[in-house]
Computed example of a mutant assay.
Amino acid sequence: MSSVRIKWLASIWICVGLQVVMAQDCSDPAPLCFVQFNNITVDSTGNGPLMADLNCANPAMNGTLYQITTIAPGDFQILLENIQCDTAGNQLGDGLILTVYDSADPCNPGPASIIACEMVSDQITLDLTAATADQNFYVAIYGDMEAGDSGPADCGYELQTSGEAVEFALTVPSVQYEILLGQSVDIEGVTGVEEYLWSGSGQITEDTMANPTITPNGIGEFTYQVMGTQGDCEVTEEVTILVQPNIIPADVITPNGDGINDEWYVLFLDERFDRADVRIFDRWGQVVYKSIGYGVTQLWDGTNNGNRLPAGAYYYVIDLKTSESGEGPVFTGAVNVIY
């Protein structure tokens, strides 16, 4: 079984989460996978679970809590922006409180573990530094209440993190592979995360490898998905493989002018293989026909430079030139000229 490798252009994707979160159990923080789009809400009385004053001593108990796990030592940033609060008659707070801490116990951080605690109504960027990989930081977002407010506002926001200590990217091929039935594709260049899992029909060798070999099990377009995992964050991308049928050369031509089999036909050898090198030889190894591509205007009619060839066996070599190296797969065989 042959393999085909095709060049590709890389695309980079990041892990994006979409969720609506109320106050939660601080023992189960949500992973912050670069970007979260959330909405803080309260109940109709304004006494919802997110109602809080500037409570930096124990922020996790009354807000939405995220966990950031670093992948390397170094700097990173936390950005809270696009805050849109629905306030009513100044009875609701009009912003959010952002608290960051690095306690070993997210439910009881204690004042000493607080890195930042800010009231935010527009946007804020915090610059942080991780000492090691696998270091946990916790980010609590909860409603801002001031004197006279009956509850925190209903606020939408965007929270994201970036920087060398936290970023990862799943790099995958971004072009379609094209092979013949029975061939395989050696995936190359998939990188960026700790764990991989491929899925799709046919045979996938080592589906937990970054770059497996894939053999589809039919003709047509096949889509394969790779899921990359980094800590608690997941990102997926797809690879498409188009499987064409193998070419089928005729083994006889009868160029007698009756309009039946007067030319040599090769089934499925068409404009898709416009680089194909087609050559036909006589029994002494002399080339009697050659072409690049084999379209309807290039069909061999049993002649050599316009001269009718004698009946007998002739031998073809067809190089489709679809591989990355520009050579192969190659098909050989005999075609008989009969008058």
Rank of each mutant, 00 (worst) to 15 (best):
T99V: 15
I292H: 12
S174D: 14
A313M: 10
P29I: 05
I292K: 15
N55C: 12
E146S: 04
I68E: 03
M119L: 09
E178C: 11
S113D: 04
I187A: 06
W264N: 09
D102P: 00
R275P: 02
G200S: 08
M51I: 13
C117A: 06
G93T: 03
I318L: 12
Y224N: 03
V20C: 05
Y101A: 00
N256K: 10
I179V: 09
A276W: 06
A30T: 10
V166K: 08
V185G: 06
A52L: 07
D270G: 08
Q67D: 10
Q183V: 01
M22A: 14
C33A: 09
G259P: 09
D28P: 06
T223P: 05
I318M: 13
N304F: 13
I204N: 01
N305P: 03
D186F: 05
P109K: 00
G163K: 08
T161A: 10
V166L: 07
D86Q: 11
Q230K: 01
N90L: 07
E234M: 14
I124M: 02
D94G: 02
P106K: 03
V252C: 05
G143M: 04
E221T: 15
D277V: 08
V288H: 02
C26T: 06
P310G: 13
G293S: 04
Q77K: 13
E81W: 09
A60P: 07
T254G: 02
D262L: 07
W300C: 10
I78P: 03
N39W: 13
P31C: 03
E237W: 11
A311T: 12
I260V: 13
R283M: 02
A23N: 15
G220I: 00
M1P: 13
W8L: 11
D94H: 00
S44I: 11
Y142W: 04
M145G: 00
G48K: 10
T236Q: 14
F268V: 04
G95L: 05
S11H: 15
A276R: 01
V166G: 03
L65G: 04
G148H: 00
V175S: 12
D154S: 10
F34Q: 15
V4R: 09
F222P: 00
I78A: 10
L170T: 06
L32K: 04
D43N: 15
G17Q: 12
Y315Q: 07
V278W: 06
F222Y: 15
A116V: 03
D43C: 07
V175G: 12
G46A: 00
A250T: 02
V172W: 11
L197H: 11
W198C: 02
Y196C: 01
E167L: 06
A116L: 03
G293N: 08
N136I: 01
M209V: 06
Q203E: 09
E238Y: 14
D207A: 12
S291C: 02
P152F: 01
I71E: 04
N90C: 02
T229V: 14
V4W: 00
Q225W: 09
N90M: 07
P216G: 01
D149T: 03
I187L: 08
P310C: 12
E221K: 13
T236D: 11
C107Y: 00
A133D: 10
A334E: 15
D127L: 11
Y177C: 09
G156N: 11
I219T: 06
N336V: 11
A112R: 05
Q123V: 03
D270T: 02
I6E: 15
Q176P: 10
V4E: 14
P245F: 00
V193E: 01
L80N: 05
N39L: 14
L269M: 04
